[in-house]
Amino acid sequence: MTHRHALEQRRTQLSEAQEIMESMKSLAFMEVRKLEQRATMQRALVDTLEQVAADFLHFYPDFHAWAPPEATIYLLLGSERGFSGAFNGRLLEQLADEPGAEQARLIVCGHKLHSRLKDDPRLLASLDGPSVQDEVQGFLLNLLERISQEQRKSALTIKMISHDPAVEQVRVEYLLPPFQTLLNTERSDLTPPLLNLPPRAFYAELVDHYLLASLNEKVCSSLQAENHYRMLHLDGAVRYLQDRLDRMRLKSNQLRKEEITEEIEVILLSADSVRPGNDTV
């Protein structure tokens, strides 16, 4: 009976863990939906700013010339929390495949990813990443401040490695210099833009707005992908626990049957001992 009671106690503990994981999975699902909407809006803003930049650079191509970079920095958007499966591992696999990554410096976002790179000599800085959508804005301010610090030191190239939930892949994109995908675009249907600012001031503000919108979209998309990974990971864990609970329930039922059999045997033996003619006094 002691063994069955211990088994039932363990079943209760696993059931509670399963309920917690189900709640975490539901929260991850809600975050995915909220982040999907925000990332879509930011993506539309990024597309608009890229169109403006393409029109502007068609008539002012000299602004596409940047100083030769003295260093390359990889910005990795990892996970702040656990239960995200292979989310961080895939970022590191992509980093290992990047040409020249051995000599680059790293800015790592997310506690869980930082724990895997804390002893890497390339690590330049680590930042706490957002856990939910409401923390994205504060994280962006910290990240932009860190990027500005590095820009003030020297000319540099920044590449971002992050998850793209739209294609379910890890993407590598230029953050600085900006508008790299617009380099070789041919346009013949444009008229010169009418600017209310000097071209240099206009382009500086355009780059600032673009970096903020682009980072906002990428961070939201990364957090969306992270929560999707978390949903899949927790779903697998919940199913594993359910399988264990089912097997434990069968084992508990078997032990209970054995206990009932033993109780019947004890009752029968007790009945035999009090029958007439079996008096041992």
Rank of each mutant, 00 (worst) to 15 (best):
I161S: 00
H163Q: 03
P165E: 09
A166Y: 01
V167R: 13
E168R: 10
Q169S: 06
R171V: 11
E173R: 07
E173Q: 11
E173M: 05
L175E: 03
P177S: 13
P177L: 05
Q180K: 08
L182V: 03
T185Q: 13
E186T: 12
E186W: 12
E186Q: 14
S188Y: 11
D189P: 01
D189N: 14
L190T: 07
L190S: 11
L195M: 02
L197S: 05
L197H: 04
R200F: 02
R200C: 01
R200K: 06
A201W: 00
Y203M: 02
V207T: 04
V207H: 01
L211G: 02
L212P: 01
L212Y: 09
L212W: 06
S214K: 12
L215W: 04
N216G: 13
N216F: 10
K218M: 14
S221W: 00
S222G: 10
S222C: 09
L223S: 07
A225C: 06
A225H: 04
N227S: 04
Y229D: 01
Y229W: 11
Y229R: 04
R230Y: 06
R230T: 04
H233W: 07
H233I: 00
L234A: 03
D235Q: 14
G236R: 02
V238I: 15
Q242F: 02
Q242H: 09
D243Y: 06
R244N: 06
M248Q: 11
L250I: 05
K251W: 07
N253E: 15
N253W: 10
Q254D: 05
L255Y: 10
R256M: 12
K257A: 11
I264Q: 13
I264F: 14
I264G: 09
V266T: 15
I267Y: 13
L268R: 12
L268K: 14
L268S: 12
L269D: 15
L269K: 15
S270L: 11
S270E: 15
